[in-house]
């Protein structure tokens, strides 16, 4: 299944009562490594044929075409220079290169700001149907579980019933929410949310925004406006701006990341719907080409199914020796 198995496994450990379909699926999951093993087919050395198959494996995982090109090209160079490559050297190479793609901006963990700034403001953006509102509901739950107080701002005033949807999540997580009428100015909602957060001494304010396709200029400009309005209350807000990416998204994710970051600098990604059959490999490319780190991953419908992403442990687990042994 790929890159995310590690998380799925973790999750299953955490919840002993993994539902039936998860167990059923476990059998059919073929890992990234076993696919590689199959492609190797007992070859002692890496050759051009294998590289072509590796290219397919990466592409099937939705890793961006350009990033795949980058990975393969570097392998080709090495193979050519050294007249071949052992299987061990391949793992070593992938560990270094693919791992490097994911480890972005690890020097200062983003959540340090949560204790130093009050309120810590997170703006959530994304295309329609990516899962912003759901993510925010789950984020509220997560922060609360960390002992932080949370307030939500329903700045998606456009989509029918978006406010009601967020309200349901606010109730589930038991956090307050600021909302205006449908069709109201989203900037005004954000403004009021931040003021309310300050007045009540709340730790984290999360602003929901309407889904918008990144090709819609006026809507994209609106995001810039919401940002500006927030700065009137808190000059350095938002402290984090997260792009919510649907894991089933293909090559377009990169375009989304580019266009969104052009109007509002992105500090992180939230990858949703990873509990499907999607591989979400395109986040590798977003991390690689844009240098935007992954903050959270969504692994299910339940409120506790949103998990923080830890690149280092991900890579360690992904390339864990045992996994390599069984593969090699």
């Amino acid at each position: 299944m790929g890159f995310w198995d590690v998380f799925r496994r973790k999750k299953e450990k955490a919840r002993e009562s993994a539902s039936q379909w998860e167990k059923g699926l476990e059998k059919t999951r073929t890992s990234f490594w076993s696919k590689i093993k199959r492609a190797l087919g007992g070859r002692p050395k890496i050759d051009a044929d294998f590289l072509e198959e590796l290219e397919d494996i990466l592409i099937t995982a939705d890793v961006g075409v350009d990033t795949v090109g980058y990975i393969i090209q570097r392998l080709e160079e090495t193979v050519e220079r050294e007249g071949g490559m052992t299987v061990e050297a391949l793992y070593e190479h992938l560990y270094r290169n693919m791992g490097a793609l994911l480890v972005v901006d690890q020097k200062s963990p983003w959540d340090e700001g949560v204790s130093s700034r009050k309120p810590f403001v997170i703006m959530v953006v994304g295309v329609n149907g990516a899962g912003k509102t759901t993510t925010i509901g789950k984020l509220a739950h997560w922060f609360k579980a960390q002992g932080k107080s949370v307030i939500l701002g329903a700045a998606d005033t456009f989509r029918a019933a978006a406010i009601d949807q967020l309200r349901t999540w606010a109730e589930r997580a038991d956090v307050p929410m600021v909302a205006h009428q449908p069709g109201a100015d989203p900037g005004a909602v954000a403004f009021d949310t931040l003021q309310a957060a300050q007045a009540r001494g709340i730790d984290v304010a999360i602003i929901d925004t309407a889904g918008r396709l990144h090709t819609k200029e006026p809507l994209m400009r609106e995001l810039g406006k919401i940002r500006k309005v927030m700065k009137k209350v808190i000059p350095d807000a938002p402290h984090e701006t997260w792009l919510v990416l649907d894991a089933t998204t293909g090559q377009n994710a990169l375009q989304q990341a580019r266009r969104f970051s052009a109007v509002t600098p992105l500090t992180g990604l939230v990858v949703t719907k990873l509990d499907g059959t999607a591989k979400g490999g395109v986040v590798l490319s977003v991390a690689h080409e844009m240098g935007i780190p992954i903050r959270f991953v969504g692994l299910g419908e339940k409120i506790e199914d949103l998990r923080p992403f830890d690149a280092q442990s991900f890579i360690t687990a992904f390339f864990d020796e045992k996994a390599m042994e069984t593969t090699a």
């Binding site: 099937t60 089933t248 998204t249 293909g250 377009n252 994710a253 059959t277 999607a278």
Partner: peptide
């Protein structure tokens, strides 16, 4: 189906 769907479209559509 979302036009932005990636390689997974095949699995979902088939299933």
């Amino acid at each position: 189906v979302d036009a932005m769907t990636g390689q997974d479209a095949v699995n979902t559509a088939k299933a």
